[in-house]
Design a protein around this nucleic acid. Structure first.
Lengths: 356, 356
DNA sequence: CTGAAAGCGCTAACAA
DNA sequence: TTGTTAGCGCTTTCAG
């Protein structure tokens, strides 16, 4: 008899043992029908006599029957859940996207499991593996890295519906939703060049992150298209936290030949740059011009306000969910890639420089 | 023979059918051992001959065996997951707490499932029901409402480990981690009173939310302790979004007798109030003094900076996880309630008023 | 050291 | 209309 009470490693644990919840079997017994009939009544399919159905429902209510999704999932193959793996849940961009995904997912009867990779590739692997092992229906992922993505390739190969957001991996055959990072960055830098700036600094993430790489490309392309040199001393790499961005900015401005303008690749970086500049007594845009990728609350609070490259953040989550649901429903078209354009919002943080 | 391929509602769906993943059975077959032996080798318990074990591991690797958590969960009773139900994932307070919980949970081999209630009681019920049906180990919840919490009471009664954060329900017998909302609010308002203010406005959430209720109590207590009247026209209720807070602030200042100071109950409200005041051409603190509950990035970006009541945000998540894990491990002490003190950070947004 | 078999809770094909 | 039964993938006794 394998009938020992499970999970009794230590005696004291038994005290708090969760009350065994009521199962279909209990309900069926209470209603004097078979498990099959009870299940039919509970889930409303097939033929059930109205008398029997009523008894079942009554018993279920009385016993507090709730159903066990894990068992259902084991039986049916998957859980009505989609996973979202953002790079960092604290970044307002991802928080907003997470919220939008949540709303859209809920609208189609799915729960959302958010698991942040914290920009750590190893962690991302573990999380995706977890989600997969849980048999979620599909996943929306902002990959932490542009390289070493065999784990993603494998998931795709195995048929798990996946939609990439924000960071596209060209060689991965799955849908993606992102913005024109290269174009946006190029526009930002060209805006600075058009205002006479020549020493333009870049504060960016590790180029392992795809968006950082693309925005760097935009920066370089803009410079080269205008015959300006790419000076490595003007490029600061920092992880995307306010404190790191502060340090990077200070380093940048501790050099003999200071930049006259700064382009920051996300709103966290922009926040850090603003704080650093202020602490160094540099006024924007009098001493330094500033333009940031991604619009954010703070951008309109400074005086003057900050010029930014805005992304249509609110469109990303809902579209990603729609695409994912298509795949979950079995759509087998070739991968679709959507790239939204960005938009330069000119505020007051860029000044005109007159060349000698 | 119930051997029909499942899930073939429509023929085209079959095309994309997820590749059936390899099971212990496959591995066992490939290694020429029984399922039991394979399981033993895979999970490293019991006696397994080293030759057999090696064959199993090799076969598992070759076949790409990954394990099925759902089945494990069904067998073992629960999933190594904890759930977090914040009021609103976009609120930076909850985003930070979510991040902290994530880190702490991961440290103890648990995944985190974040499901935001969006301050909707009905939604919260559905989400908690989902989590419960998934057999998660425990949940950390910021209840959307101070009333109508039978759903929570029931979960607790059934033995699901639950820790409340930010918003404590006194009559619910479970652990909680929060801050001294009443005391913090009182200190804020007393600070304003000490600076000579008499017409002090409050911008707050619906009092259905426990923190809003407690902070309102602090506001009222401070006024009464100082012999000041509570004027309903000075109390604006708004849901916690920037736009709603803007509207509420404008309404407040459209009255004949304007307040000389404003106390906002969270950082989103504070952001909204700042935007509204600026749009009305009112300078802080020249025309209006301002103090907000909860410190946030923006508070140090305005000129002058904003005086706030700071909470030890970083301590809440980790402690909640620790308490939850205790319960999961079977701790059966009576409920523990932790309340952190708040701290007034005086910056420049409160001016002294000289009475006539 | 290994294998057979039971059973977690649920659903659904099939028989009655 | 209802009941019987198989089985999802896994772990774990118990008997070899």
């Amino acid at each position: 008899m394998a009938g020992l009470p499970r999970s009794c490693r230590k005696p004291e644990e038994a005290l708090l043992a969760r009350k065994k919840s009521t199962t279909v079997k209990d309900v069926a017994a209470a209603a004097n029908v078979s498990r099959a009939t009870a299940a039919r009544a509970l889930n409303g399919y097939g033929y059930v006599g109205s008398a029997a159905a009523e008894r079942v429902l009554e018993a279920a209510a009385r016993l507090g029957y709730r159903g066990n999704r894990v068992a259902q999932a084991l039986r049916q193959g998957d859980l009505p859940i989609i996973g979202f793996v953002p790079g960092d849940i604290q970044n307002p961009f991802f928080a907003k996207v997470a919220h939008d995904i949540d709303v859209a997912a809920r609208g189609s009867q799915h729960s959302l499991l958010i698991a942040s990779s914290e920009e750590d590739l190893e962690q991302e692997r573990a999380l995706l593996d977890n989600l997969r092992a849980l048999n979620v229906r599909g996943m929306i992922v902002a990959p932490a890295s542009g390289k070493d993505n065999q784990h993603l390739a494998r998931l795709v190969r195995e048929g798990t519906p996946i939609v990439l957001i924000d960071r596209v991996l060209e060689d991965l055959p799955c849908d993606s939703v992102a913005v024109d990072n290269e174009g946006g960055a190029r526009e930002a830098v060209e805006h600075l060049i058009a205002h006479g700036h020549r020493r333009i600094a870049l504060i960016q993430d590790d180029t392992r992150i795809v968006t950082a790489r693309d925005r760097l490309a935009g920066y370089i392309n803009a410079l080269q298209a205008n015959g300006l040199p790419v000076d490595q001393r003007l490029i600061a790499v920092s992880s995307s936290t306010v404190q790191h961005a502060i340090d990077a900015t200070i380093r940048l401005f501790s050099q003999p030949e200071r930049p006259t303008a700064v382009f920051t690749v996300d709103s966290v970086m922009t926040t850090g740059a603003l704080l650093a500049l202020r602490s160094m007594g540099l006024a924007v845009p009098r001493d330094v011009s500033l333009i940031g990728f991604d619009d954010f609350d703070l951008a309109t609070f400074t005086d003057p306000q900050i010029t930014v490259i805005a992304q249509p953040v609110g469109k990303i989550g809902p579209l990603a969910v729609r695409m994912l649901l298509d795949r979950i429903r079995g759509l087998s078209e070739p991968p679709r890639h959507v790239r939204f354009p960005t938009r330069l919002i000119s505020r007051g943080s860029v000044s005109r420089i007159f060349l000698p």
